[in-house]
């Protein structure tokens, strides 16, 4: 076993994890600023220059709060649920390629933690697991509102996970692989149409798949307008009603980390990831992901929340058929391209 490679990989994973956490903290700042701007307010500005220390202040406040466990709660599950959410959230970053291979101190370092050949399935599986934090948290709180939030979340995540998975099938058909690294490589060969070079980004060849992915991803991360599990106007706080202090912050963190992870994934799958001229690949990836994150916030300020039946109807009656049509069309075009039709 090559201990040096192992160690470098480990260090890289450590860096990625910490960057994710740091980003997450400033994601909240970013969100508050953007929200404020869109709502014609100023947003946080008193803590540090431009309010830049606000996330840190929030963090300290949350950690310092009392950790309350309700009397009737299912204690073990109540304590484990937020941890589960929090632990699973950053794992999907492990398969995101942040670039190719660089040489540091004479040692080849891959700019991704792992290249597994079922990377996309791995991300989907993590998404499927992530819902347990919410369901169990809601159940263990012994609170009607929490339970309702948990039930909604279960139904919603199952429904949209199907759409999410099917919306990606078109990409798989075009790239012929489930590995994110290889999907990225497939997007880096530009197509040329009679001298005009067009990047082979899958957003161009899979526009419908991209839109479906975007909608399903927003639903998977329980963000507005699909934030029914935590709809404060009807369910108080949904599954995290009874949580406080750092356990609440775990749920909170997990949500933002999921957003970042999904944005990275979308950028990698559809926007060519690190592909781009002039600057280094990582910056391109960051810029593209930031685009998605901004989109998330934009959605939140713009769209009202769905009604529950509308939400399920949208998934099963609109998005699912569209995803199937997309698969069929892509398959046919692919067969035609291969000369098999």
């Amino acid at each position: 076993m090559n201990w040096a490679a192992f160690l470098s990989n480990y260090i890289f994973a450590f860096i990625v994890l910490n960057v994710m956490l740091g980003l997450m903290a400033y994601m909240t700042y970013f969100e508050r600023k953007v929200l404020a701007a869109m709502q014609d307010r100023v947003g946080p500005k008193r803590t540090g220059p431009f309010g830049l220390l606000q996330p840190i202040a929030d963090g300290i406040k949350l950690l310092a709060k009392e950790d309350i466990v309700p009397k009737n709660a299912d204690r073990l599950v109540f304590l484990v649920a937020p941890l589960l959410s929090f632990v699973l959230a950053p794992l999907s970053a492990a398969v995101i390629p942040f670039g190719g291979t660089v040489t540091v101190f004479g040692q080849e370092v891959n700019l991704y933690v792992a290249d597994i050949n079922v990377a996309v399935l791995y991300v989907l599986a993590l998404g499927g697991m992530g819902v347990y934090g919410i369901i169990l948290g809601g159940y263990a709180s012994a609170n009607r509102y929490s339970l309702l939030g948990a039930l909604r979340s279960a139904a919603q995540v199952i429904s949209y996970e199907i759409v999410l998975g099917l919306s990606l099938v078109g990409v798989f058909i075009l790239s012929g692989t489930l590995s994110l690294v290889q999907i990225l490589e497939a997007q880096q060969q530009p197509l040329s149409f009679g001298g005009v070079q067009v990047p082979n980004w899958y957003i161009l060849s899979q526009p419908l798949g991209f839109v479906l992915f975007l909608i399903a991803a927003v639903a998977e991360t329980n963000r507005a307008p699909f934030d029914l599990p935590e709809a404060e106007s009807e369910l108080i706080g949904g599954f995290h009603t009874e949580y406080s202090g750092f356990r609440f912050s775990f749920f909170f963190l997990a949500e933002y980390i999921n957003m970042i992870a999904v944005s990275l994934l979308a950028a990698t799958l559809f926007l060519g990831g690190t592909d781009g001229p002039i600057a280094d690949g990582v910056w391109w990836l960051a810029a593209k992901a930031a685009l998605f994150l901004f989109f998330y916030i934009w959605l939140r300020t713009t769209l009202p929340r769905f009604r529950y039946d509308q939400l399920m109807g949208l998934a099963w009656k609109v998005l699912l058929p569209l995803a199937l049509i997309n698969i069929a069309l892509t398959g046919l075009i692919r067969l035609w391209g291969l000369g098999l039709l």
Binding site: I116, V118, L121, A125, Y132, I135, Y139, E161
Partner: peptide, 28 residues
């Protein structure tokens, strides 16, 4: 590897979530 992913997606991600759903729905 594929089956491992399928196992998690189908069993843990879907079937058991449904089971939990039903457990909570049946008679909490």
């Amino acid at each position: 590897e594929f089956l491992a992913a399928a196992q998690i997606i189908v069993y843990t991600g879907a079937i058991l979530v449904l089971v939990l759903f039903v457990i909570m729905l049946v008679d909490p």
